[in-house]
Amino acid sequence: MTTLDAVEQQAVEIARPKRADKFKWGEIPLHIVLIAIGLLVSTPIIIAFFMSFTPLKEIVTRPTPELLPDTWVFDNYRTAWNATPFARFMFNSFVQTGLITIGQVLFSVLAAYAFAMFDFRFKNALFAFVIGSLFVPFELIFIPNFITISDLGWANTYAGLAVPFLASAFGVFMLRQFFLTLPRDLFDAAKVDGASNWYYLWKVVVPLSKGGISAFTIFSFLGAWNQYLWPLIITNDESMRTAQIGIRFFLVNQERATDWGAIMAGAMIVMVPTLVVFLVAQKQLVKGIAMSGLKG
């Protein structure tokens, strides 16, 4: 079995673990411990959820904090949604994330294909060039990038938000590994059929690597959606802020006693897309992460 098949297999097992053959009473303590840990880990999110339905009056007048609201209200969501253009922020985040994800996946597929299948001059040097970028911390380059994007007139644009991140060395490396594992026979068959490189990439390589590509897609999506430092400095127009920056401004936009209910409602709004991805694509996500172990 190849490494990547193994990872694929693992990912399936991590997301949908193998079950014991039959229930044993002895498991019960383990269940209790695991549920307790699970609840502890999810506590911040659970609190945010309940807080988002608690009226401000209750939050500030209670003598001690309480988890559940006495009266459930939906007002906090309305407040958050109206106080700040969250709809616009979410849209911006989707555009930025969409551009970055598409760019990273597409460009990584192309580059990985070249590295896996082609022989050309400077191949090793170019590969080192790509991989070397993994070791450059973002902190070293964001000031010049800010200046570059400003000079291009791309501040406050989707281009400014996305273009610096359209390539991913990790994606190139990971997908190259995938492509290298494809069975040899396919090449021979394609060659006999006279297929072009381009055709072969899209008709054979990509469909056979769907697992790896989708895992990388999710990985890339989350990374882009959760970006913070870059959008913070490259946008100043409210209509171009992303959701992550929006929540930060919403937190700052508290002149009096902080309206925690509305802030948590805002946080829930921003978390929803990633939570949905988590619930729907847990397997791919886990696989993407498990495969990032290959990077090291």
Partner: peptide, 20 residues
């Protein structure tokens, strides 16, 4: 269920973690 509860921070951004 165990896994879902324990894995979930993986999708949380640093901004949201800060706010929570």
């Amino acid at each position: 269920l165990h896994r879902m509860l324990i894995f979930v921070p993986v999708v949380i951004s640093s901004a949201i973690a800060g706010v929570l």
